[in-house]
């Protein structure tokens, strides 16, 4: 861990203060110091190649994370509630429901990129040709739609894990509470609101923490589906950083942007901790 996490991270932070570009790359750690230049460039210098894309990527990452995490948690909870009912083939359904989680991200991206194609893809065939739900064929992989093109597969892949996690919580829940409430005349919605949800809070908190981190660092799905530059509407922080570092050799800038991203996530953890502190101590 020291070898892979600690020392290299320190190295990465050091690099963020270096002028590391096409010409100095071969000198690596001997590249000239540039102080806070990389950070200034990203945040304030409009002529900097990273500046322009940076705020767009920040915004996109917010949007992506919001919808992906929201979809994963709400969807996961909804399906968990569905599966918590006794029914025939329950075990089979529960197991099969987990399979999307097993499909590797790079396969998910290739597959969905293929399904989204506007003229021959199956999604538009269903939405336009077979059911007529939409009059015109949307182009999913361009413009604003491309955000949905990466959010939906991300939810699809992430949801099963949240589902099984919540399902476990639901099953461990004491039945007496529900029964007592039902006798008192509380309907299913009220029981969900006042019994299920509060008891699930710690689980939601854990899911929220890791889902947000995972979504904010998403790379494989946009990169494989939309290419190294997913465009102004779907360029996430990680695709931006990896592109600028590894295709454009702006390693110093890339490292600085990574540090900023890390700081942002630290803020998120702090906020999260404040919000859910009580729930964590309860368990």
């Amino acid at each position: 861990m020291v070898l892979v996490h600690l020392i290299p991270t320190t190295g990465g932070i050091l690099l963020s203060f270096k002028r590391l570009n096409t010409f100095t790359f071969s000198r690596l750690f001997d590249a000239p110091w540039s102080g806070l230049e990389n950070y200034r460039g990203i945040l304030f210098d409009t002529a900097n190649p990273l500046h322009d894309g940076f705020f767009g990527a920040v915004q996109n990452t917010f949007v992506y994370t919001f919808w992906t995490v929201g979809g994963t948690i709400v969807g996961g909870l909804a399906i968990a509630l569905l599966l918590n009912r006794p029914m025939r083939g329950q075990r089979l359904v529960r197991t099969l429901m987990l399979t999307p989680w097993i499909v590797p991200s790079f396969v998910v991206a290739v597959l969905w990129g293929f399904m989204w194609q506007s003229d021959v893809g199956i999604v538009n065939k269903i939405l336009v040709d077979y059911t007529g739900l939409l009059g015109e064929r949307p182009i999913w992989l361009l413009g604003e739609n491309s955000m949905w093109a990466i959010v939906i597969p991300s939810i699809w892949r992430g949801l099963p894990f949240a589902m099984i996690f919540f399902l476990a919580g639901l099953q461990a829940m004491p039945q007496e509470l529900h029964e007592a409430a039902a006798i008192d005349g509380a309907g299913p919605l009220r029981r969900f609101r006042y019994i299920t949800l509060p008891l699930l809070r710690p689980l939601i908190a854990v899911q929220l923490l890791f889902c947000v981190i995972y979504a904010a660092y998403q790379f494989a799905i946009p990169y494989i589906m939309l290419g190294s530059n997913p465009g102004p509407d779907a360029d996430l922080m990680m695709t931006l950083i990896v592109r600028q570092s590894f295709s454009n050799n702006l390693f110093g800038f890339g490292a600085a942007a990574s540090v900023l991203l890390t700081l942002a996530m630290c803020v998120w953890v702090a906020v999260w901790y404040r919000a859910f502190k009580r729930d964590l101590e309860a368990t």
């Binding site: 861990m1 892979v4 996490h5 020392i7 290299p8 991270t9 320190t10 190295g11 990465g12 932070i13 690099l15 890791f210 981190i213 660092y217 790379f219 922080m237 990680m238 950083i241 990896v242 570092s245 390693f251 890339g254 490292a255 990574s258 540090v259 991203l261 890390t262 996530m265 630290c266 953890v269």
Partner: peptide, 12 residues
């Protein structure tokens, strides 16, 4: 450890 993006320590 989960908070550090891979892009930060990959090159080192």
């Amino acid at each position: 450890t989960q908070l550090i993006p891979g892009s930060l320590f990959l090159l080192p």
